[in-house]
Design a protein around this nucleic acid. Structure first.
Lengths: 162, 162
DNA sequence: GTCAAAATTTACCCTAGGGTAAGAAGTCAG
DNA sequence: CTGACTTCTTACCCTAGGGTAAATTTTGAC
């Protein structure tokens, strides 16, 4: 059980944990040189979240993972997880499918970012995560979609009019 | 052996092939509703390329894979590859590492797109792929970095001045 | 080489979205 | 309910980068 605002991974630290979300919502984000936050990922029920760049490459975290609403998560140690594969080889295909799905999701996101306008990205976000929207602040959604909260607010105002 | 301009995967078709590059260069891209191309991925020596969205999800290709310069690639059938895991379980961790690296690369790309300017993205691209640049047209690089070729040209002109 | 076709650069103006800041609306502790 | 704090909206102007198009350079076939 973690509470809103709790930081599970802090930028700069070594990462050997990954979290599986049972309930609630979290996000991973970085802070750029001007102090602006950029959300890489949201995680809700049944999603994994961590700083995968840091974990897979064994480098200090460039991301932070923060709790957006009170959540229940399972914490896994990366090393322990790595050792699961030897005694339980049936876990391999499971994890492989997971990674494949992750790659697909990321490819889609990159393509969307390349070809859609701010407005289209927001509409797609609403369609994909119809329920996530209530629990997540405007500001966080904007930083995930690659726009300012002011732009998102403008887009929302336009959509209401239509 | 495939020649410059050859299309290995065509948007719309069913995808059950993935390619491993021995030499040369290829790219995967989509065409948006206005007819603009967006490059999702380049592949050079030792990289894999396909339409992973289509292959993993068993849906028609939204991407095309095209040969940028004369190349030598190995073609793998997705089903065959899937069946390799049973007799050769040692292939699993290998593929898992591959996917993990892929996820890391995609995370980095998304973060770069969120926080860097056009100029910074181009400079980073040059640093990451110092040799790729000669063999790939300006137009393709621009469509990968999420800007027009005119913008890229402007950025390059500025960089020469400095 | 010569010519055509393609790629790149440059120049012009234009627009989507950013920056700053002020106001409005929720949210919540007491 | 009240005041403090946070989030969201609106309004203003501004800028990075897009669109169009023409000029230039590069490439490649013959």
């Amino acid at each position: 059980m973690v509470s809103k605002g709790d930081v599970l991974i802090q930028e700069g630290q070594t990462v050997n944990k990954t979290f599986f979300v049972l309930s609630g919502s979290l996000r991973s984000f970085c802070i750029d040189k001007e102090g602006k936050e950029h959300t890489l990922q949201f995680a809700i029920k049944d999603w994994w979240i961590s700083d995968f760049i840091a974990m897979y490459n064994q480098v200090p975290a460039s991301l932070s993972v923060e709790c957006i609403s009170d959540s229940v998560v399972l914490e896994f140690d990366a090393q322990t997880l790595d050792q699961i594969y030897a005694p339980f080889p049936e876990f391999e295909p499971f994890q492989r499918k997971n990674l494949e799905r992750h790659v697909v999701a990321l490819h889609k996101r990159i393509l969307n970012q390349l070809q859609l306008t701010a407005r289209e990205r927001y509409q797609l976000f609403l369609a994909q995560y119809p329920d996530i929207e209530q629990s997540i602040s405007n500001y966080h959604i904007a930083s995930y979609l690659g726009m300012t909260q002011q732009s998102l607010s403008r887009v929302r105002a336009e959509l209401v009019k239509t």
